[in-house]
Amino acid sequence: MASGLARRIISGGSLFRQLAAVTGLWLAFTAGTAGAQETERSGKLLLTGGVSSIEGAGGGGLAPWALITAYGAAGQVGANLHATVAELPDYQFRSGGIALGLQDRLELSYARQSFDTGATGARLGLGQGFTFRQDVLGAKLRVLGDAVYDQDRWKPQVAIGAQWKSNDQPGVIAAIGGRDHEGVDYYVAATKILLDHSLLLNGTVRATRANQGGLLGFGGDRNDDYSLQFEGSAGVLLNKRLLVGAEYRTKPDNLGFAQEDDWFDLFAAYALNKNLSITAAYADLGDIATFEDQRGLYLSIQAGF
């Protein structure tokens, strides 16, 4: 059901149709739980699971954080669905998926990403509307610390994670110099919430061979080895529902045919309640497959239960 839904969201076409699909689902869900409005459901505090990052893990928009997604506390399971769209000058990125947070300890996630080349596809010789699709399975384990409660010490919450990625275009990837259409990223993330400054900080180190996150395959003619990349996020809590911040993600540059740039965004994540949050960002994804300055609006909706 999950992947069917994700597929429906992704093939849904317009941004609004996709958001409407998720919102409809959310409404159907809350209709069943109406009444628990005044006192929010049990579990974790608002936004302490992060939002859905582009690869499906709980985090910011671009980077996974050490926080475990959803509102399940110790002894509980939480889950959420997400739909994300980034409108870029020459491409459209879409993602939909599901994530589970178990006992605030283990996170399992699945995301299906689509990278739609639209009219650019024809100019790249791939054909109008050519779309790369990638499945990302993620697992993340909190290994030490607690970002929320450890306010009397500097120790951050630390998690280790892996993302198994499989791209559906091995032929094109080989043609542009990529070595594989499948790959695994490994990461360590450290998150600290400095409540007395209303600040959230995250640093993630990722070992990866992925080109553009895997959308253009893994390894390349220029470099085929794993490299260590850094992803940093900083956010200010303006109130208990609203986190605004910035992220920076360094990337490898493995392919000879086109330069790959680091990613950057400015984001605002808003939790309407524990069932629904929306993230809007201005994302600068740099050059992608010879098309320069891919900057645009990133919108993500997350429905939790």
Partner: peptide, 10 residues
């Protein structure tokens, strides 16, 4: 429980 602790904080 942790959930109750958070409920009180809310």
């Amino acid at each position: 429980t942790t959930a109750e602790f958070n409920a009180l904080v809310e």
